[in-house]
């Protein structure tokens, strides 16, 4: 389970997650990554501490209704939660399992051509989250980005013009990057990818089918 993660989520996205400012799809990416990465988890919790300091600094002297709250706690029974079991991390970390409705075998894949498959996950409309299945040795067509795209490897590995990425690694791509991710030959590659704007494909065929795939 312990993987050596080389590529982390940028601090601005971790801060935005802590502040509650990320679109749901990006929050899903952060939650999935920090399920595997204690470095980024600690950074998020440090930003939460900053949020605590912001909350402390708010001044408001009004009566917030103590009597009402005391009546409310009398009415709720104490929550008896069993000790949560340490999560059993399979290929799919828990927050992502919630969106798939199960583990890898529950994913409803759709072909997007050249052996690549995807499954769009249900999130709010500001951004899109999808799982990508890239057969060993296959490539995602050459493309650019209109906004930000984060791609995290769940299984296998891929490489592009910038570097190589293995389980837990996150690639951050923006307007400045054009790339063609290629899955390693050793195993099929499964990724979580989130985008806040459509991709820009550099070849005709993907461009024609793009509207149907919601890429």
């Amino acid at each position: 389970m312990k993987t050596k993660i080389k590529h982390h989520i940028e601090d601005r996205h971790l801060l935005a997650y802590s502040a509650g400012a990320l679109p749901e799809a990006f929050s899903l990416m952060v939650a999935t990554h920090i399920s595997l990465c204690d470095r980024c988890r600690a950074q998020v919790e440090a930003y939460d501490a900053l949020g605590g300091a912001v909350l402390e600094a708010v001044t408001d002297s009004s009566d917030a209704g103590l009597d009402r709250a005391l009546a409310a706690i009398d009415a709720v029974s104490p929550e008896v939660t069993p000790r949560p079991e340490p999560a059993k991390t399979g290929v799919i970390p828990a927050p992502l399992r919630d969106y798939i409705g199960g583990d890898l075998d529950a994913v409803r894949w759709r072909p997007v051509g050249l052996g690549v498959r995807q499954a769009i996950l249900p999130t709010s409309g500001e951004a899109t989250a999808r799982l990508l299945f890239i057969p060993a040795g296959a490539a995602v067509p050459d493309h650019g980005h209109r906004g930000t795209e984060l791609t995290m490897v769940l299984q296998g590995a891929f490489s592009d013009e910038t570097d190589s990425f293995a389980r837990g690694d996150v690639e951050t791509a923006d307007e400045a990057l054009n790339h063609m991710p290629v899955a390693d030959i050793s195993a099929d590659c499964i990724c979580l990818a989130v985008t806040d704007a459509p991709l820009r494909f550099n070849t005709l065929l993907p461009r024609l089918i793009q509207p149907f795939l919601r890429i």
């Binding site: 749901e24 899903l28 920090i34 340490p86 970390p93 927050p95 969106y99």
Partner: peptide, 20 residues
């Protein structure tokens, strides 16, 4: 913060895996 996302933005907030 989670309550605010729920009430004002009407969105789910994915949380990381529980470490127990």
């Amino acid at each position: 913060r989670n309550r605010r996302i729920d009430m004002l933005r009407k969105q789910r907030r994915p949380e990381p895996e529980d470490l127990g």
